[in-house]
């Protein structure tokens, strides 16, 4: 039995070292195990989604009329906000041209579904599994976001599935900057259920609780402008080299269902590329009232 234990230990050390040097075994396991897991889970998830959609559609019929009125009002406000943002965007473009700043290319985005959270006894890091792999553009290191903000980064990929390291994991780091104070720091996870830490922030800065932290892009991986977290507390001490700043992630990591995987254009660095969340996404799709509302607004403006 001792010989057996010795053999197991020897096998482990041999495979562990081989993988640490070449990464081949992890790739093989990813191509085989991760892909197999995805293939087994996908049909069930598809069926569950269809069933839930049917149930939701049926239940939604009850309050459709009232909801329709409420949504139409919201839509009108959203439309105004979008138009205002577009106008500001055009102004920004003109100002960039005036200042001779190079144009910023947008990141490509691909939608993915979360098919599992922590999976199996080996999943000790804070991670989730996606139904999109390297054939769908999810390469190791690709940032993953939701409409709320940064979720994490792709860790391992298979042809049609990927494992994403969440921002709450202690091994996760991203360069951030305060949206108002413009103070730079490194955002890192501290474990599940614990606040995120903002490290190496220069002392005597004016970062305050409530400030939004956005990715600065200087790490060369995550695009500039992605909202990452909100500062929850700032503690300055006389004996501390750096202030103790904690923050909370913007995305609800416990209820992740759909995410966007960001793909940088080839040959470009993250700090050269601005993240433009809604540039190529029609945020108000398939709404017949939209054109009507726009026409009404234009008519009202013309009258005025």
């Amino acid at each position: 039995m001792l010989i057996f234990f010795g053999l197991v230990l020897l096998c482990f050390l041999a495979f562990y070292t081989l993988d640490a040097r070449t990464g081949r075994l992890s790739r093989l396991a990813g191509m085989g195990g991760l892909e197999l897991t995805r293939q087994v889970l996908s049909p069930g998830i598809w069926l569950k989604d269809r069933f839930m959609q049917l149930v939701r559609n049926y239940l939604a019929l009850a309050g459709t009329a009232e909801e329709n009125v409420r949504l139409t009002e919201k839509l009108s406000l959203a439309l105004q906000s979008v138009e205002h943002s577009r106008e500001e965007g055009r102004e920004l473009g003109r100002l960039r041209l005036l200042l001779d700043l190079p144009p910023l290319s947008p990141w490509e985005k691909t939608g993915a579904r979360v098919i599992a959270g922590k999976f199996g006894p080996q999943a000790v890091l804070n991670s989730v599994m996606l139904n999109k792999g390297f054939l769908g553009g999810a390469l190791p290191g690709s940032p993953v976001v939701t409409a709320q903000g940064l979720v994490g980064r792709v860790l391992y990929t298979a042809p049609h599935s990927a494992t994403v390291l969440l921002i709450t994991d202690p091994s996760f780091r991203v360069a951030v900057v305060g949206q108002e104070s413009r103070v730079r720091g490194i955002l890192s996870g501290a474990g599940p259920g614990k606040p995120l830490l903002v490290q190496y922030v220069a002392p005597n800065t004016n970062m305050r609780p409530g400030e939004l932290l956005i990715c600065s892009g200087i790490d060369g991986i995550t695009p500039r402008g992605v909202p990452a977290a909100r500062v929850s507390s700032v503690l300055y001490g006389k004996d501390m080299l750096f202030p103790e700043i904690s923050s909370a992630p913007l995305a609800d990591l416990s209820r992740l269902e759909e995410v966007l995987v960001l793909i940088p254009p080839k040959g470009a660095r993250a700090d050269e590329l601005l993240y433009e969340p809604f540039k190529d996404i029609d945020i108000l799709p398939d709404v017949p009232e939209l054109d009507q509302l726009a026409d009404e607004e234009n008519a009202a403006e013309t009258e005025n």
């Binding site: 562990y16 396991a29 191509m31 999976f119 199996g120 006894p121 000790v124 860790l155 494992t163």
Partner: peptide
């Protein structure tokens, strides 16, 4: 293969 592939630690 399944546990290592779907897990998040180095192989072994």
């Amino acid at each position: 293969l399944i546990q290592e592939g779907a897990g998040s630690l180095p192989f072994g």
